[in-house]
């Protein structure tokens, strides 16, 4: 599971209103090279919740990879270094084992073999 996916996942338990972002617990993670594509990154940037991405990167130990405040899209157009950091955080870091914890209920969704399990128990649907 890449941080892109973490950025898109929310707690799906019925009645939960503050289920985003899920707190990332990373017990094991790996980095895999991905082709850098500036157009894709600039296109996806408006869809990304920046604080959630910063938090997820920190959960993996990357405290200084990304600026705390979301950059202006115009900065992203000119700052190649920042774009590459965004690329690394969003697409290259894979959480293999760990969990995703709902901020409202503390329900933990496990991540095994790189796959988050969002299946609910009967009383959560």
């Amino acid at each position: 599971m890449r941080l892109l996916t973490h950025n898109m996942l929310a707690c799906n338990i019925k009645g939960v209103t503050n289920g985003y972002p899920l707190r990332l617990e990373a017990e094991k993670w790996v980095e895999k090279e991905v082709d850098f594509n500036a157009d894709f990154l600039r296109g996806v940037f408006p869809k990304i919740d920046w604080p959630a991405l910063v938090g997820a990167a920190r959960a993996l130990g990357f405290h200084d990879l990304l600026p705390v405040d979301a950059p202006d899209p115009s900065v992203l157009a000119s700052d190649d270094e920042l774009l590459r950091r965004f690329h690394r955080a969003l697409l290259q870091l894979h959480v293999e084992e760990g969990g995703l914890v709902c901020p409202e209920t503390s329900r933990r969704f496990p991540i095994n073999k790189g796959i988050p399990n969002m299946l609910l128990h009967e009383d959560e649907v």
Binding site: M1, R2, L4, T5, L9, N12, K32, V34, G114, I115, P116, N117, M118, L119, L120
Partner: peptide, 8 residues
């Protein structure tokens, strides 16, 4: 490579 999620 794909992002895989176990969900309904």
């Amino acid at each position: 490579q794909a992002e895989i999620i176990c969900t309904d």
